[in-house]
Protein backbone atom coordinates (compact mmCIF):
# COMPACT_ATOMS: atom_id res chain seq x y z
CA UNK A 1 0.00 0.00 0.00
CA UNK A 2 1.29 3.46 -0.90
CA UNK A 3 2.05 5.54 2.18
CA UNK A 4 0.46 8.95 2.33
CA UNK A 5 3.56 11.08 1.70
CA UNK A 6 3.35 14.87 1.68
CA UNK A 7 6.22 15.28 -0.79
CA UNK A 8 3.85 14.52 -3.70
CA UNK A 9 1.78 17.56 -2.77
CA UNK A 10 4.89 19.73 -2.67
CA UNK A 11 6.24 18.46 -5.99
CA UNK A 12 2.75 19.11 -7.50
CA UNK A 13 2.87 22.67 -6.14
CA UNK A 14 6.37 23.10 -7.56
CA UNK A 15 5.20 21.93 -11.00
CA UNK A 16 2.30 24.35 -10.78
CA UNK A 17 4.76 27.16 -10.07
CA UNK A 18 7.06 26.13 -12.93
CA UNK A 19 4.08 26.05 -15.33
CA UNK A 20 3.54 29.79 -14.77
CA UNK A 21 6.77 30.28 -16.73
CA UNK A 22 8.80 32.09 -14.06
CA UNK A 23 12.55 32.48 -14.66
CA UNK A 24 15.19 30.80 -12.45
CA UNK A 25 16.28 33.38 -9.84
CA UNK A 26 12.68 34.46 -9.24
CA UNK A 27 11.38 30.90 -9.19
CA UNK A 28 13.49 29.99 -6.14
CA UNK A 29 12.76 33.35 -4.52
CA UNK A 30 8.99 32.76 -4.76
CA UNK A 31 9.38 29.12 -3.71
CA UNK A 32 11.38 29.93 -0.60
CA UNK A 33 9.12 32.82 0.41
CA UNK A 34 6.05 30.58 0.07
CA UNK A 35 7.77 27.81 2.03
CA UNK A 36 8.68 30.37 4.70
CA UNK A 37 5.05 31.46 5.01
CA UNK A 38 3.89 27.81 5.19
CA UNK A 39 6.53 27.03 7.80
CA UNK A 40 5.39 29.98 9.89
CA UNK A 41 1.82 28.69 9.73
CA UNK A 42 2.88 25.18 10.68
CA UNK A 43 5.03 26.46 13.55
CA UNK A 44 2.21 28.65 14.89
CA UNK A 45 -0.13 25.65 14.95
CA UNK A 46 2.55 23.51 16.61
CA UNK A 47 3.31 26.19 19.23
CA UNK A 48 -0.39 26.74 19.99
CA UNK A 49 -0.83 23.00 20.40
CA UNK A 50 2.27 22.70 22.61
CA UNK A 51 1.11 25.51 24.93
CA UNK A 52 -2.27 23.82 25.35
CA UNK A 53 -0.61 20.43 25.82
CA UNK A 54 1.82 21.77 28.40
CA UNK A 55 -1.05 23.31 30.38
CA UNK A 56 -3.00 20.04 30.29
CA UNK A 57 0.04 17.99 31.33
CA UNK A 58 0.97 20.37 34.14
CA UNK A 59 -2.65 20.29 35.31
CA UNK A 60 -2.83 16.51 35.31
CA UNK A 61 0.55 16.17 37.04
CA UNK A 62 -0.85 18.37 39.81
CA UNK A 63 -4.23 16.58 39.74
CA UNK A 64 -6.11 19.53 38.29
CA UNK A 65 -8.10 19.74 35.08
CA UNK A 66 -6.42 22.68 33.35
CA UNK A 67 -8.33 24.56 30.63
CA UNK A 68 -11.79 22.97 30.21
CA UNK A 69 -14.13 25.74 29.02
CA UNK A 70 -13.25 26.46 25.39
CA UNK A 71 -14.26 23.39 23.42
CA UNK A 72 -13.50 19.76 24.20
CA UNK A 73 -11.00 19.83 27.09
CA UNK A 74 -10.31 23.46 26.22
CA UNK A 75 -8.70 22.64 22.86
CA UNK A 76 -9.00 26.19 21.49
CA UNK A 77 -7.99 27.92 24.72
CA UNK A 78 -4.58 28.95 23.33
CA UNK A 79 -6.15 30.33 20.14
CA UNK A 80 -8.27 32.59 22.33
CA UNK A 81 -5.13 33.51 24.30
CA UNK A 82 -3.35 34.50 21.09
CA UNK A 83 -6.30 36.70 20.09
CA UNK A 84 -6.26 38.26 23.55
CA UNK A 85 -2.51 39.00 23.32
CA UNK A 86 -3.10 40.62 19.91
CA UNK A 87 -5.43 43.16 21.56
CA UNK A 88 -3.19 43.97 24.54
CA UNK A 89 -1.75 47.41 24.96
CA UNK A 90 1.96 47.69 24.21
CA UNK A 91 3.38 49.22 27.39
CA UNK A 92 6.76 50.77 26.67
CA UNK A 93 9.06 51.91 29.46
CA UNK A 94 10.07 55.54 29.12
CA UNK A 95 13.81 55.07 29.57
CA UNK A 96 14.21 52.01 27.37
CA UNK A 97 16.78 51.75 24.59
CA UNK A 98 14.28 52.14 21.75
CA UNK A 99 16.11 50.37 18.92
CA UNK A 100 17.33 47.41 20.99
CA UNK A 101 13.99 47.06 22.80
CA UNK A 102 12.05 46.84 19.55
CA UNK A 103 14.29 44.39 17.65
CA UNK A 104 14.97 41.89 20.47
CA UNK A 105 11.68 39.94 20.08
CA UNK A 106 12.03 39.99 16.28
CA UNK A 107 15.54 38.54 16.37
CA UNK A 108 14.51 36.02 19.02
CA UNK A 109 11.77 34.67 16.77
CA UNK A 110 13.78 34.78 13.53
CA UNK A 111 16.69 32.90 15.16
CA UNK A 112 14.30 30.13 16.16
CA UNK A 113 12.59 30.21 12.76
CA UNK A 114 15.77 29.95 10.64
CA UNK A 115 16.61 26.52 12.05
CA UNK A 116 13.58 25.08 10.23
CA UNK A 117 15.27 25.36 6.84
CA UNK A 118 17.23 22.18 7.47
CA UNK A 119 14.93 20.17 9.73
CA UNK A 120 13.76 17.08 7.83
CA UNK A 121 10.06 16.70 8.60
CA UNK A 122 9.79 13.60 6.46
CA UNK A 123 11.01 11.82 3.36
CA UNK A 124 11.71 14.71 0.95
CA UNK A 125 10.13 17.26 3.31
CA UNK A 126 13.04 19.62 3.86
CA UNK A 127 13.29 23.20 2.67
CA UNK A 128 16.97 22.99 1.67
CA UNK A 129 19.36 20.16 2.48
CA UNK A 130 22.58 22.03 3.33
CA UNK A 131 25.69 19.87 3.50
CA UNK A 132 26.54 21.62 6.80
CA UNK A 133 23.00 21.08 8.19
CA UNK A 134 23.56 20.48 11.89
CA UNK A 135 26.42 23.02 12.11
CA UNK A 136 24.09 25.57 10.50
CA UNK A 137 21.42 24.91 13.15
CA UNK A 138 23.96 25.36 15.94
CA UNK A 139 25.07 28.62 14.34
CA UNK A 140 21.68 30.27 13.83
CA UNK A 141 20.06 29.18 17.09
CA UNK A 142 22.95 30.89 18.92
CA UNK A 143 21.43 34.22 17.86
CA UNK A 144 18.80 33.60 20.54
CA UNK A 145 21.49 34.46 23.12
CA UNK A 146 22.04 37.85 21.48
CA UNK A 147 18.32 38.59 21.41
CA UNK A 148 17.92 37.74 25.11
CA UNK A 149 20.88 39.97 25.97
CA UNK A 150 19.28 42.71 23.84
CA UNK A 151 15.97 42.29 25.66
CA UNK A 152 17.76 42.48 29.02
CA UNK A 153 19.75 45.55 28.06
CA UNK A 154 17.02 47.35 26.15
CA UNK A 155 14.46 47.16 28.96
CA UNK A 156 16.70 49.23 31.24
CA UNK A 157 15.54 47.19 34.21
CA UNK A 158 17.74 45.46 36.77
CA UNK A 159 15.76 42.23 36.78
CA UNK A 160 15.74 42.12 32.99
CA UNK A 161 19.48 42.78 32.72
CA UNK A 162 20.25 40.11 35.30
CA UNK A 163 17.99 37.67 33.45
CA UNK A 164 19.63 38.46 30.14
CA UNK A 165 23.15 38.04 31.55
CA UNK A 166 22.22 34.79 33.23
CA UNK A 167 20.66 33.38 30.10
CA UNK A 168 23.77 34.30 28.09
CA UNK A 169 26.08 32.65 30.64
CA UNK A 170 23.87 29.57 30.83
CA UNK A 171 23.40 29.15 27.11
CA UNK A 172 27.08 29.52 26.21
CA UNK A 173 28.01 27.04 28.96
CA UNK A 174 25.56 24.39 27.78
CA UNK A 175 26.45 24.95 24.14
CA UNK A 176 29.74 23.05 24.69
CA UNK A 177 28.28 19.74 25.97
CA UNK A 178 25.58 19.99 23.31
CA UNK A 179 28.14 20.28 20.50
CA UNK A 180 30.22 17.45 21.98
CA UNK A 181 27.23 15.08 22.15
CA UNK A 182 26.31 15.95 18.57
CA UNK A 183 29.90 15.31 17.42
CA UNK A 184 29.69 11.66 18.52
CA UNK A 185 26.81 11.19 16.09
CA UNK A 186 28.74 12.98 13.33
CA UNK A 187 31.71 10.61 13.80
CA UNK A 188 29.39 7.69 12.99
CA UNK A 189 27.28 9.31 10.27
CA UNK A 190 30.27 10.89 8.51
CA UNK A 191 28.14 13.80 7.31
CA UNK A 192 26.68 17.01 8.67
CA UNK A 193 23.66 16.94 6.35
CA UNK A 194 20.43 16.22 8.23
CA UNK A 195 19.11 14.03 5.38
CA UNK A 196 22.31 11.94 5.33
CA UNK A 197 22.16 11.51 9.11
CA UNK A 198 18.59 10.23 8.90
CA UNK A 199 19.31 7.97 5.94
CA UNK A 200 22.30 6.37 7.65
CA UNK A 201 19.86 5.20 10.36
CA UNK A 202 17.41 3.50 7.98
CA UNK A 203 16.55 -0.17 8.20
CA UNK A 204 15.76 -1.68 11.54
CA UNK A 205 15.37 0.00 14.89
CA UNK A 206 18.89 -0.98 16.05
CA UNK A 207 20.34 1.27 13.36
CA UNK A 208 19.08 4.29 15.30
CA UNK A 209 22.11 6.06 16.70
CA UNK A 210 20.93 5.80 20.28
CA UNK A 211 21.34 2.01 19.97
CA UNK A 212 24.16 1.98 17.43
CA UNK A 213 26.66 4.21 19.24
CA UNK A 214 28.78 2.48 21.90
CA UNK A 215 27.43 4.77 24.60
CA UNK A 216 24.41 6.11 22.72
CA UNK A 217 22.20 6.59 25.78
CA UNK A 218 24.90 8.72 27.45
CA UNK A 219 25.16 10.89 24.34
CA UNK A 220 21.38 11.25 24.23
CA UNK A 221 21.00 12.03 27.94
CA UNK A 222 23.77 14.65 27.90
CA UNK A 223 22.25 16.12 24.74
CA UNK A 224 18.78 16.35 26.24
CA UNK A 225 20.12 17.96 29.44
CA UNK A 226 22.05 20.55 27.43
CA UNK A 227 19.05 21.07 25.15
CA UNK A 228 16.77 21.71 28.11
CA UNK A 229 19.20 24.39 29.26
CA UNK A 230 19.47 25.83 25.74
CA UNK A 231 15.70 26.12 25.48
CA UNK A 232 15.62 27.84 28.93
CA UNK A 233 13.29 25.20 30.31
CA UNK A 234 12.83 24.14 33.94
CA UNK A 235 14.96 22.95 35.79
CA UNK A 236 17.31 25.36 33.96
CA UNK A 237 15.00 28.37 33.68
CA UNK A 238 17.13 30.68 35.85
CA UNK A 239 16.82 33.53 33.31
CA UNK A 240 13.09 33.85 33.94
CA UNK A 241 12.98 32.53 37.50
CA UNK A 242 9.60 33.86 38.61
CA UNK A 243 10.35 33.89 42.32
CA UNK A 244 13.52 36.02 42.20
CA UNK A 245 13.72 37.78 38.85
CA UNK A 246 9.94 38.13 38.41
CA UNK A 247 10.15 37.22 34.72
CA UNK A 248 13.76 37.87 33.76
CA UNK A 249 14.47 39.33 30.35
CA UNK A 250 10.82 39.64 29.27
CA UNK A 251 9.62 41.56 32.33
CA UNK A 252 8.99 44.84 30.50
CA UNK A 253 7.44 43.27 27.42
CA UNK A 254 3.71 43.06 26.83
CA UNK A 255 1.27 42.30 24.06
CA UNK A 256 2.63 40.92 20.78
CA UNK A 257 6.27 41.50 21.74
CA UNK A 258 5.86 39.20 24.72
CA UNK A 259 3.96 36.77 22.49
CA UNK A 260 6.99 36.59 20.16
CA UNK A 261 9.30 35.58 23.02
CA UNK A 262 6.76 33.03 24.14
CA UNK A 263 6.32 31.66 20.62
CA UNK A 264 10.09 31.48 20.15
CA UNK A 265 10.45 29.55 23.40
CA UNK A 266 8.03 26.85 22.29
CA UNK A 267 9.45 26.80 18.75
CA UNK A 268 12.91 26.30 20.31
CA UNK A 269 11.59 23.45 22.40
CA UNK A 270 10.25 21.80 19.25
CA UNK A 271 13.59 22.45 17.47
CA UNK A 272 15.74 20.74 20.09
CA UNK A 273 13.33 17.80 20.17
CA UNK A 274 13.40 17.56 16.38
CA UNK A 275 17.21 17.56 16.43
CA UNK A 276 17.18 14.85 19.10
CA UNK A 277 14.86 12.74 16.93
CA UNK A 278 16.99 13.31 13.82
CA UNK A 279 20.25 12.49 15.56
CA UNK A 280 19.29 9.68 17.90
CA UNK A 281 15.88 8.22 17.00
CA UNK A 282 16.15 7.69 13.26
CA UNK A 283 14.29 10.82 12.13
CA UNK A 284 11.45 9.94 9.78
CA UNK A 285 12.37 6.24 9.58
CA UNK A 286 9.52 3.92 10.40
CA UNK A 287 7.15 1.48 8.77
CA UNK A 288 3.49 1.42 7.64
CA UNK A 289 2.68 5.00 8.63
CA UNK A 290 3.80 7.97 6.46
CA UNK A 291 7.25 9.34 7.29
CA UNK A 292 6.13 12.80 8.42
CA UNK A 293 3.76 11.20 10.93
CA UNK A 294 6.66 9.18 12.36
CA UNK A 295 8.78 12.28 12.67
CA UNK A 296 5.99 14.26 14.31
CA UNK A 297 5.11 11.44 16.71
CA UNK A 298 8.70 10.87 17.83
CA UNK A 299 9.29 14.61 18.24
CA UNK A 300 6.16 15.01 20.35
CA UNK A 301 7.36 12.16 22.57
CA UNK A 302 10.66 13.99 23.18
CA UNK A 303 8.69 17.20 23.84
CA UNK A 304 6.61 15.24 26.35
CA UNK A 305 9.87 14.23 28.06
CA UNK A 306 10.93 17.90 28.31
CA UNK A 307 7.51 18.81 29.73
CA UNK A 308 7.69 16.04 32.32
CA UNK A 309 11.15 17.35 33.34
CA UNK A 310 9.51 20.68 34.00
CA UNK A 311 6.89 19.28 36.32
CA UNK A 312 9.18 16.82 38.11
CA UNK A 313 12.32 18.74 39.06
CA UNK A 314 12.82 21.87 41.15
CA UNK A 315 14.85 24.75 39.73
CA UNK A 316 18.64 24.66 40.21
CA UNK A 317 20.69 27.37 41.87
CA UNK A 318 22.84 29.47 39.57
CA UNK A 319 26.15 28.18 40.97
CA UNK A 320 24.96 24.55 40.72
CA UNK A 321 23.92 25.23 37.15
CA UNK A 322 27.30 26.54 36.00
CA UNK A 323 29.38 24.03 37.92
CA UNK A 324 27.27 21.15 36.63
CA UNK A 325 27.97 22.27 33.07
CA UNK A 326 31.72 22.85 33.36
CA UNK A 327 32.77 20.27 35.95
CA UNK A 328 30.55 17.37 34.97
CA UNK A 329 28.95 17.64 31.53
CA UNK A 330 31.94 19.00 29.58
CA UNK A 331 34.44 16.32 30.70
CA UNK A 332 31.81 13.57 30.35
CA UNK A 333 30.73 14.50 26.83
CA UNK A 334 34.31 14.88 25.54
CA UNK A 335 35.29 11.54 27.12
CA UNK A 336 32.25 10.03 25.40
CA UNK A 337 33.39 11.59 22.11
CA UNK A 338 36.89 10.09 22.38
CA UNK A 339 35.56 6.67 23.41
CA UNK A 340 33.06 6.79 20.55
CA UNK A 341 35.80 7.65 18.07
CA UNK A 342 38.04 4.86 19.42
CA UNK A 343 35.21 2.32 19.08
CA UNK A 344 34.59 3.53 15.55
CA UNK A 345 38.28 3.03 14.71
CA UNK A 346 38.32 -0.45 16.24
CA UNK A 347 35.05 -1.33 14.52
CA UNK A 348 33.28 -2.30 17.77
CA UNK A 349 29.76 -1.48 16.62
CA UNK A 350 27.21 -2.90 14.20
Amino acid sequence: MERLELKHIFSWLHDLLVSTGLGEPWLSVVTYLMLGAMMFGALSVIALFLVWWERKISAHVQQRFGPMRNGWHGWYQTIMDAIKLLQKEDVRVTNRDKFVFFWAPVICFVAAFLAYIVIPFGDGLIVADFNIGILYIMAVTTFTIISLLMAGWGSNNKYALLGGMRSAAQMVSYEIPMVASILVVIVYSGSLSMVDIVESQSGMIFNWFIFKLPFGPIAFITYIIAATAEANRVPFDLPEAEHELVAGFNIEYSGMKFAMFFLAEFVNMFTVSAIAVTLFFGGWNGWLLPSWLWFLGKTLLVVLLLMLFRWSYPRLRVDQLMEFAWKFLVPLTFANLLVGAAFKYLGWYW
Binding site: V29, G36, A37, L114, I117, A128
Partner: peptide, 12 residues
Amino acid sequence: EYLAVLLFAVAG
Protein backbone atom coordinates in the same frame (compact mmCIF):
# COMPACT_ATOMS: atom_id res chain seq x y z
CA GLU B 1 20.17 26.98 -1.81
CA TYR B 2 21.72 29.36 0.72
CA LEU B 3 19.33 31.92 -0.74
CA ALA B 4 16.82 30.14 1.51
CA VAL B 5 18.54 31.54 4.62
CA LEU B 6 18.22 35.11 3.40
CA LEU B 7 14.64 34.68 2.24
CA PHE B 8 13.56 32.88 5.42
CA ALA B 9 15.06 35.71 7.46
CA VAL B 10 13.19 38.25 5.31
CA ALA B 11 9.94 36.26 5.56
CA GLY B 12 10.37 35.82 9.33
